[in-house]
Nucleic acid binder design. Sequence first.
DNA 1: ATAAATTCTTGACGAAGTTAATTAATCCTG
DNA 2: CAGGATTAATTAACTTCGTCAAGAATTTAT
Lengths: 396, 396
Amino acid sequence: MPRSAPARAPITSPAAATVFTTVLTEGPVSRVDVARRTGLSSAAVTKAARPFIDAGYLEELASEGRTTPGAGRPANPLAIRPDREYFVGVKITGDDLIGVVTDLRADVRATAHHALTSHDVEHVVRALADLVGELLAGPTPDGTSNLRERAYCVGVAVSGDVDRASGIVRYSPFLGWRDVPLASLLEDATGLTVTLENDVKALTVAEQWFGEGVGASSFALVTVGTGIGSALVVDGALVRGAHGVAGEIGHVPVADGGPLCHCGGRGCVEAIASTEAILTRARLIAGEPGLTMDDAVVRARGGDEPLREVFAAAGHAIGLGLAALVNLFGPERVVVSGEGVATYDLFEDQIRRTFAVQAFGSAARCGLVIRPLPFEEWARGAAAVAIQSLFVAESV
Amino acid sequence: MPRSAPARAPITSPAAATVFTTVLTEGPVSRVDVARRTGLSSAAVTKAARPFIDAGYLEELASEGRTTPGAGRPANPLAIRPDREYFVGVKITGDDLIGVVTDLRADVRATAHHALTSHDVEHVVRALADLVGELLAGPTPDGTSNLRERAYCVGVAVSGDVDRASGIVRYSPFLGWRDVPLASLLEDATGLTVTLENDVKALTVAEQWFGEGVGASSFALVTVGTGIGSALVVDGALVRGAHGVAGEIGHVPVADGGPLCHCGGRGCVEAIASTEAILTRARLIAGEPGLTMDDAVVRARGGDEPLREVFAAAGHAIGLGLAALVNLFGPERVVVSGEGVATYDLFEDQIRRTFAVQAFGSAARCGLVIRPLPFEEWARGAAAVAIQSLFVAESV
DNA sequence: ATAAATTCTTGACGAAGTTAATTAATCCTG
DNA sequence: CAGGATTAATTAACTTCGTCAAGAATTTAT
């Protein structure tokens, strides 16, 4: 699949990346403001910004009257042109593929799904290529051109142990894969540049650049659902762990002598608060082996105290895990999201209560955001990784 | 106290700092080797090394025959001259001051103690100045000169919330201090440059540069004793926490519904494994309110099962805390040290056992070093901070 | 000896960002 | 409403830092 090479992102120096990402993540900003925030000289900002303006990634807004009071030449804020380029993001779950097309700001502009009937590598690669093809079939969202000519980068998010640099899935329990060079396979199949990343880490990038993480030098993202995981950003960089393991908040032991976890430990957060753990416990409590999650939720909401207790215990375990994380790291903010639908009302209170009790000193000042997480958000994270890989040579 | 200004550490560029610290921490290395390890060009290493050689901080060793086989010009390894400059480190505890003089490699060359009879700021500053004066009274350890002419930097380590940049003790529970500008007070009293740091962080710097942390991009140091704390180094930088709180492993909740901690939480590691917590529990178990720690240790060693259990429970709690830390961070190595004397034999086994069970996946591959920690080590950490502040403008 | 290998040094060059002066656009004041 | 004050953006000269490429130094191998 040949492709012409129009002027692409003109990253030529560290300063260029700094300036661009500042404008990208902090909205329209004047050059002087960028200089102030980044510590660069305003001359450097002028120089770095020009190639981006020439290539159509940034534009100069009209000085729009006066924003700051007082005398002086009004600023000409720099703004991103989100429709300059589009990106594809795909999240692979055990059952299906969820794909999105986003603009430069990682705003979702189109969506597509695809069921996975097999975990066979070739099948998945074909399905991925089909999905990408489908997503890129039409015109651009702004209607000025064809998507194929304005989207070159695909981001793919998979749970498990993923080596982003080499684009290899080292180990994915859900897919049953080991050492699959998915990025290059998909590049061959689509002719596009593919970046592969762990799903939680991808979501974290999206959050860091375009979500709650904006402006926070350190924050954490926790996902609650089938599994419980997290990713940590310290001083702007993702913590990767010496042996590839980090952010395993799901396996922080919080209940001494508690239930056995599939990891071999006892009392792990995941052994108490994962969807499965909750369901198992709910069935036991209710004495109904056939109880479904939906039913349990409905009944708990309806006031079934024993069932409410099960959810509260899960929230308590999560709160303890959060306290451990925050006491160790001291992030500025923590985002708790869940793939499970809207059962938040059953957790949130208890999470906050437990956290408030167990957070040490001013660590409790850390901002705690709890919110549901639509499935597409994962795919958006994948797209964010693609965006990031384009503008930051070596980072995160 | 006037002082002449001989040629000091010639740090003029990032490369200079990189080259110097490489030689400092990784022993004699040839220039080409430094280049390979740091990614610099060998030309840059040559240029950066010269000022250090001229100023007497580095020296070129004779090519000492052939170390690597094969042809080629033999290397002239660069080595540190540890006696080029001396440093003072002081640790402040609630009861006394412990001071050391070290050389450039942070090797302790002289020691002095001083009891603290009051926590009054003026009294402590005077005591500190006296101690420093005493330490610097004699000739240099290498006998070539006077210490006063070869030591300009003092490092001070205090437990509590310390702002290193401004040299202010924000809050120290042990001393009952709030917002004491200790660094400038001591600079006025001694005429020397003073760097202030939290004690655990200081110890971590020593470990990172001269101890177990050498070569590890991420590691953690845990101290067990009156309090239980830790410091984390990720990608070579100390984690400081957005609100100044980080590394509070002592307040990671590991025993749901466990004993109340002075922090207000329940089941914190510190509420189970601090010296005080152990003693309280041992007295309860033994039914002897007057039991001393020494006696408890002796009896546990002698085979008193109930008492052994108390220590094992403490080890278990520490192991759980370590598992939380390692599962979240994935450090390459963890050092567990304790100020408490030599009661390690009663903990170590249980720490390792619990950790092995609860560490997730390859996180268990993290190297776990458990070892006692002589009191002087704290003062050495303070000296290491002084050394570091001299050679690294902005870091850690 | 001569060639090959390896370390170290040197000087020209280039990239990136700084400072300082200049131009531009606006408000404020008498 | 002219002229100064004030802030924004640009330009150009300069500084700094480190790379590159060529060569000198010093050893082993043939």
